[in-house]
Design a protein around this nucleic acid. Structure first.
Lengths: 246, 246
DNA sequence: GGAACCTTAACGCAGCGTCAGCGTAT
DNA sequence: AATACGCTGACGCTGCGTTAAGGTTC
């Protein structure tokens, strides 16, 4: 009755074959069906689920979104409203970054405990407990901020290594310094042009990476602790404006 | 009846005060009580839970162990058998490292998708899906290993930056090279002494950090891809023996 | 006697794994 | 008639949050 050799035309995969094809379990597929996340294209007379190629494409999207940590309900939402995808993913990136920060803290705690025990001491339960409760509460206390800052610095440095500044960039810095020296602020007429040039440069630097943008923002907002890299308050003002309106 | 001003002597904290003291919710305390993880020292006549200082100490240990990702059942186990603590923590370190690796992969995936979308393209759903299923399965395929390797390299490099080699270390390397040149292998009589010196040096380098040891092992086992750092197969043999028997 | 505090019991949550009990295709 | 495959419940798991309905202390 069926003759096609390769391409199954319609909705020809039964659940087992389909699950192996996609690398998920059958139980998962039934679950997705029940909650309405991925309904098979058709059902056989006996009620067998019949999946198609389109189903596979959709399932792969689901897998990816699950991999980046989205809950199934949000996955359903973004698949229904693809316009919100960008935003959702960017938010997710932020979130994963924080998670990684906490993981790093936990790993560091383990290292410290390990070292203490190697030295025959008791681990500092109380100290770690304080850090832990703060981190769990998402408390923006010193410790936590420090970690986010570290992560942010790491990212900015990484990017900077892979980056080679163009002549434009140097000219921009020169022009901004000159403007500051003349007393032109970022909201003056020539200043606004500089701000927009700065934004362009930043966009090139970040490559449209919002996490990197956040990182830069974080690092710059910590300028109090920057040692010798004083840009001067005038230049700083340019940065602030460029950042806020970007 | 009670007169002590500061130090509550016996079991004087009721649940609310105690929860605030420790930074956990009352519900959590009740939960721990029910599952037998942390029973209050006493109960009042009316059945109120009464916690003591010892309870606080134990709770802090629990908090720490939870922070590093141990499930409550395992926490109960290691608190009952403190001898297994070392091992448990080391295993946990390994596990968290892997988790962080997967998080990094997810973040990278997000970055790639973000870049694709910025360029007006569709994200590579299928490609990411493959990676995702492999990572989820803990599949020791290329990708996965690559990530573990990257992490391992990062750790070794980090440590190396903070490390300054002593004269002993240089002498050790010289001696080993000499031994190899003479044809003495790691199982020869003089060779065994060198192996044990190497182990000592490694112990100093890792500071008793098993994750770092794993990292070194991983990086070294990938020697095929080391570019110019050829130690020569003779030296390599020393390393392998030292590593295996450490 | 009212406010603040305590108790137990029980449902809900996310994302499936894992039976159990029963049809279907071949 | 055996075997592999499919179906729908329904409970279990983790670590609590969150009512609900009621006692205790001051």
């Amino acid at each position: 009755v069926k003759g096609q050799p390769q391409a199954k035309p319609h909705a020809s995969y039964r659940i087992q074959e389909f699950s192996r094809l996609a690398g998920v379990t059958m139980r998962t597929l039934r679950h997705y069906d029940r909650i309405g996340l991925l309904r098979p294209t058709a059902r056989s007379g006996a009620g067998y689920r019949l999946y198609s190629r389109q189903d596979l494409a959709r399932l792969q999207q689901i897998i990816v979104l699950k991999f980046v940590g989205l809950p199934l309900t949000k996955i359903a939402a973004v698949l229904k409203q693809p316009g919100a995808l960008r935003e959702t993913l960017d938010g997710q990136r932020q979130l994963l970054g924080e998670k990684r920060g906490r993981l790093t803290m936990a790993i560091d705690a383990l290292i410290n405990m390990s070292m203490a025990m190697s030295a025959g001491e008791e681990p500092d339960w109380q100290g770690v407990a304080t850090t832990a409760t703060r981190a769990a509460a998402g408390d923006p206390e010193m410790w936590w901020r420090t970690y986010r800052l570290q992560e942010a610095r790491r990212r900015v440095m990484e990017r900077r290594r892979a980056w080679n500044a163009t002549r434009e960039d140097y000219e921009l810095m020169r022009d901004i310094k000159a403007a500051v020296a003349r007393g032109d602020g970022p909201s003056s007429r020539p200043g606004r042009a500089l701000v927009s040039r700065w934004q362009d440069a930043m966009a090139r630097f970040t490559g449209g990476d919002p996490e990197l943008k956040w990182a830069i923002d974080l690092v710059m907002s910590d300028r109090a602790s920057w040692p010798g890299v004083a840009l001067g308050p005038g230049v700083q003002a340019y940065f602030d404006v460029a950042m806020k309106s970007a």
